[in-house]
Amino acid sequence: MIRVLRLLSLLSLLEGVALAKEVHVVATVPTLAALASEVVGDHGEVISLALHTQDPHFVDARPNLALALSRADLLVLTGLGLEVGWLPTLLTGSRNGRIQPGSVGYLDASRHVQVLQIPTSAVDRSMGDIHPGGNPHYHLDPRAARPVVVALAERLGTLDPEHAGDYQLNAKLFLVELDAAIARWQEQAQPLRGIPVIDLHRSWPYVADWLGFEIVADIEPKPGVPPTPRHVLAVIGLARERGVGLVIQESWLPSNVSRTVAEKSGARLLILDAQADFRGGQTYVQHVDALVSALVAGVTP
């Protein structure tokens, strides 16, 4: 099936070579860039504004990023306020009407995924750095990748009707590969089902929901708020009580406290890349593959 689709994709590509016009896609984070790249194929270039080693909440609004946006036909963002601290000023500075909010070239991927942890009561910053629209860390859940890829194919087809068929085909190809991978990952991740896990920052509920493990505590007492010794002590106590075997965190955050919690509670610490290494050539499937493998290895005696 995949071979047939790839052949069709190649034929379609050859057909369009004579009239090829590159489409410029800019994604705010590398994982979205990796997904966009699957759909764009050879019809353009995809750029990620943030690095995979960089906390996507706190990206410097360097002017060269505005320059990249000024040339974009399509902007793909996480949404839910993840990029609110840096993207708006870059967007205004880009002077690019094609990618302003409300334009065809502005794709808020969160509008297409099932969002978790949407607050149901009034929120303010006494609760930490919360996202009123819900948890934006859906990048690692391949179930969220699926609708994002579909939306990308539709949007690219609108922007570049000449290659709309190619984008649909590329998306279909990728989704076939993704579905196969999801089945494989879910089988591989059976040992994770039902186990208690502690995280540092609440970036993992989508993965937990997908793979069936339970996040019993966050080391941060509130999102973005550094823990106090008493809070860490309570987390360790809970970890011991629940027999927590895994402590997980993103690679861009300091790991000393997580390491201490792991050490004191007899758990393993996993420091994971929460974004795909897009610039290094990593695909979305490779990225999730590595993540699932690491998690499973973490609970393997």
């Binding site: 909440h57 601290g85 942890q117 149901t120 919360i130 819900g134 609440r202 970036s203």
Partner: peptide
């Protein structure tokens, strides 16, 4: 400090 996911308030899925 890094802002992140929803914190203390009651939360639901869409």
């Amino acid at each position: 400090p890094a802002p992140g996911a929803s914190g203390d308030p009651p939360v639901v899925s869409a």
